[in-house]
């Protein structure tokens, strides 16, 4: 595809994204007139202080969280698919989010009765960093384990199964921990595992934004490396890439993204594995310079859509975000496996 058309599609997606963002903050259980929504977004005061509060403290932070989570998960998925040269890789399927969960569980459950997710959030910046650090560490540990194992496995589907097993083992460890924890803590933890884009606000949002931006920045700067890794490690090395350094950088960026998002939004599935495929088919390229921004846009769009579906306009209930992403993402994964040229290309 010519660069001109790629730029056009990126611009079109960006426009669509702005529209969806607007729609997302305009809809919810409380009816707020569209005019007032726009006024708040343009940081003008409105008369109704309840609406003002809902907009500033709930809807806008939630939409920003959706944007960050969408970007981060998709890009981490793209990086993993390139690093493992496996179209079925993603932060959730290879157990990376499970690793992050282990980190979060360690903070939540080991903290005892005083430290719950609620109190951590109350702790402000220090607590946010603590959860993020624990989640990223958990994610990085599992990712390094998966990298070590992936070197010995050539078959992509087998690698997927191994990843799922690693995730299961990690979740079992958490279950053992839960078994010996008080019911309040367990309930708190379980609610977190459903996934939620709400509840990240104020100083946490700042920390969250910083972490995701750092991850995205590292990833964008490593797009040349990722391009070379498309040919496999030996070719990449023959072209002057230091394989060890590349692997460390990609692991850092992926753990930072998947870890911080899991810490704040819970283990959100399927976005990471599905979006890179959508980006590849939409932009018809393998160049990461295009694919990374493309993944950001599509991931964000999908996340905002999922969020809107989760809080279906007029409904008083908000469905857990994980249910919606699975309903949308799982068919994409099945599609990838069933694709006609799958056997020829990947096995």
């Amino acid at each position: 595809m010519r660069p001109g058309r790629q730029t056009f599609r990126l611009a079109a997606l960006l426009l669509l994204l702005l529209l969806i963002f607007l729609l997302d903050v305009a809809t919810g259980s409380a009816r707020i007139p569209f005019k007032d929504v726009c006024r708040v977004l343009l940081s003008m005061r409105i008369d109704n202080s309840t609406w003002q509060y809902i907009m500033v403290n709930i809807r806008i932070p939630k939409a920003i969280t959706a944007v960050l989570a969408g970007c981060g998960l998709s890009v981490s998925g793209l990086q993993m698919q390139t690093l493992f040269r496996n179209p079925l890789a993603g932060p959730d399927v290879l157990g990376i989010t499970a690793g992050a969960s282990l980190g979060v569980a360690a903070v939540m459950l080991a903290g005892g009765s005083i430290v719950t997710m609620y109190t951590i959030k109350e702790l402000g910046i220090a607590g946010s960093w603590l959860v993020i650090a624990a989640a990223c560490l958990g994610a990085a540990c599992i990712l390094m384990l998966v990298v070590a194992i992936a070197g010995r496995i050539k078959d992509n589907v087998v690698m997927l199964i191994v990843g799922v097993m690693i995730g299961t083992i990690t979740l079992s460890l958490i279950s053992i921990w839960q078994y010996f924890s008080s019911s309040d803590l367990v309930k708190d933890y379980l609610l977190w595992t459903f996934g939620s884009l709400g509840g990240v606000s104020g100083s946490q949002l700042l920390v969250f934004t910083l972490a995701v931006f750092a991850g995205l920045l590292i990833s964008f700067f490593s797009s040349k490396m990722l391009d070379a890794l498309l040919l496999g490690e030996n070719y990449a090395r023959s072209m002057g890439l230091s394989a060890r350094r590349a692997r460390i950088i990609i692991i850092c960026s992926t753990s930072l993204l998947a870890g911080s998002i899991t810490a704040f939004c819970g283990p959100i599935g399927f976005i990471g594995i599905a979006v890179p495929h959508l980006a590849r088919s939409l932009f018809n390229t393998s160049s990461h310079r295009i694919l990374i921004p493309g993944c950001c846009l599509i991931g964000t769009l999908l996340m905002l859509l999922c969020d809107m579906i989760a809080q279906w306009p007029g409904s008083q209930n908000v469905l857990p975000i994980n249910i919606i992403t699975a309903l949308i993402g799982a068919p994409v994964v099945i599609g990838v496996i069933l694709r006609r040229n799958y056997r020829r290309v990947y096995s």
């Binding site: 040919l231 070719y235 072209m239 590849r280 393998s286």
Partner: peptide, 26 residues
């Protein structure tokens, strides 16, 4: 080593040969 990327065009692959000479963004 098999190069199994489905989205890579022949020209994009050949262009990767310029990796040692291209800028930091390729």
């Amino acid at each position: 080593d098999p190069v199994r990327n489905s989205n890579l065009t022949a020209k994009a692959l050949v262009s990767l040969g310029r990796y040692p000479y291209s800028g930091w963004l390729g």
